[in-house]
Design a protein around this nucleic acid. Sequence first.
DNA 1: TTGCCAAATGTCGACGTCGAAATTAGATGT
DNA 2: ACATCTAATTTCGACGTCGACATTTGGCAA
Lengths: 357, 357
Amino acid sequence: MVSIKDVAALAGVSDRTVSRVASGDTKLLRPRTRKKVLKAIEELGYVPNRAAQMMRTSRSLVLGLMTDVVATTPFSTDIVRGIQDALESTPYTLLTINTSGDPAKEARSWQTFREHGIDGVLYVTMFHRQLPVTTQFPSIPVVLVNCSAPAHPERPYIVPDDYRGGYDAAAHLLAKGHRKIAYVALNEHILAADLRGSAFLDALAAERVEARGDWIVPGLVGDVFKDRFVAFENVTRILKQADRPTGIVCGNDEIALQCYCAALELGLKIPDDVSIVGFDDFQAVSNVVEPKLTTMALPYHEMGSLAVETLVGMLKGTPPKVLHTKYRCKLIERASVCQQNHPAEDTDLPARLTIEP
Amino acid sequence: MVSIKDVAALAGVSDRTVSRVASGDTKLLRPRTRKKVLKAIEELGYVPNRAAQMMRTSRSLVLGLMTDVVATTPFSTDIVRGIQDALESTPYTLLTINTSGDPAKEARSWQTFREHGIDGVLYVTMFHRQLPVTTQFPSIPVVLVNCSAPAHPERPYIVPDDYRGGYDAAAHLLAKGHRKIAYVALNEHILAADLRGSAFLDALAAERVEARGDWIVPGLVGDVFKDRFVAFENVTRILKQADRPTGIVCGNDEIALQCYCAALELGLKIPDDVSIVGFDDFQAVSNVVEPKLTTMALPYHEMGSLAVETLVGMLKGTPPKVLHTKYRCKLIERASVCQQNHPAEDTDLPARLTIEP
DNA sequence: TTGCCAAATGTCGACGTCGAAATTAGATGT
DNA sequence: ACATCTAATTTCGACGTCGACATTTGGCAA
């Protein structure tokens, strides 16, 4: 391994001078010396040794990415992409560990991070959720992404605004004139399901539209990670009714995909007979189905970038401006929703609606 | 930072003894001493310092994962999962860098790896492809995954057997009695498209089944990473013909999804009117569409594991048993293919077929 | 009890880097 | 030419660990 000393010998200067050149310490260096050293570095193919730097400075310039299954799962890979993209403009590198959601493995991972002298950690979960109070964090900077830790209010976190996203998804159908709207929910064990579900109800209530109980059905059942899709059956049943909804809000894009299958198999046209709104903008589905899916995009990429920005800021000593961020979702309008000119008899609204602004 | 010396002081032994305990060097240690040191380690929360270890031993116990976009793309995340799972049983950790396919970034990444004293590298591509001859590798152990480097025949690689997969996919439909089979191809710029495509033709030829030119259509067009799906239009056109195929082999599962949309919209039943075989077993699609998709699974997880095994072996000094591995694909039978009892008039086969075994 | 040997533990130094402090080179003014 | 001052460079040492080697300990046979 070629070290700073080899370079120094070749360039005819002291090792300390080489160190200065290598770390871009331009101020106290004569251009002539600098050039001489640069040439020697080039010639020998010298690369600084991070381990040695770290021993000296006790900073590793490595960040830890701890995920449950995010990094290996299709859905939230955009968080990772956002993180990596943002890391580009920093001196940090990323050490990735996947815990598979196993607490024992998580404990071991923290230890590994400590061994590596990780400067800070991005703790990312696949589903938007609250961490159990038992979750412990070591005393290094950590930014939570897609999850919050009620037991650790001092830890910054970044989550999507699922409530608002759910609200806006329903509102979109309402704005397009739909009044008969079904909702196919995510797995009830997920926080996002709760948020989006109650937002759906609130959005309908705000417009004085009835939320029919038999039109609110689960799309996924069973334990998280072992759940089963049931959207197809449930939606098929609903769409077979003579009086069927003209629009469906789905808990995610896979559920929307099952709705597509159900609707199409029944000979219904999308969006004319049924309009469908997805959630997640999971491109492998949303941009492939025909007609293309209108869906609520989760701001994963931005969340990842913001997380890096926040963490790097903390490492510089700048506390985050906003400790807890709820990132807004964005509706991606494609072709699965149409304007609904609902005939009078379809709208079963209280008269007072007419005096609404 | 609590070091080996602090522990030594507390336990009343020399630092060297602590070092031995910490590295699990059981042989030359009295159990009593060991226990004493272990207690001190526990008490102080000592964690070995990898940077120091590395300086001493000049091995980092870190592997580099260099990807083009794999880690951030839904399709081949199983490779990463396979890698991470296999890493579990080794002392290695993973430093991840994503090059976005940018050669400049790739060069920088190699440098970063060198700085970190990476012991070996897993070089993974999203698509099965051949690396251009311009691709350079530094002189450390590297295992290529999902790609090969004709210019570097000494480098081990692990790729899927796309040809055989394509062959078996077509053979499956043939075995089920289908004789009128269409093929919707991947983007022609991808190596896998080539392999699977020619395998399709060979499989049909082997059974003396005609491969109709107008039933072989692209499913994706445009530059890789910027391509556009055209399977829907193309398949719709084919399925509208009076004489239409009873089975379709698809270049991947997303193309299969477009076939679903096309077939269902035309009022055709899957699998009774059209049987469909996908490729990739991209679960977010294959296990969600209704009926569930029969598809050729790429052995991504196994490829990742084998890559780690190979690399770790190389680091131990064991050269890989097999330098270049083609991993077999596996057909996942679900519900999108049915037995086809083709009437005599449908088969337009040369008479000599009757004398085939 | 002594002597011997293997087992157990200790001492020392170097890995590559950079902070602090010390030294030298170069510029400026007289 | 010389003093003075700043800019540029060098010297020195320590970070935590473990390999090589040195030393001590404990057990056991004579």
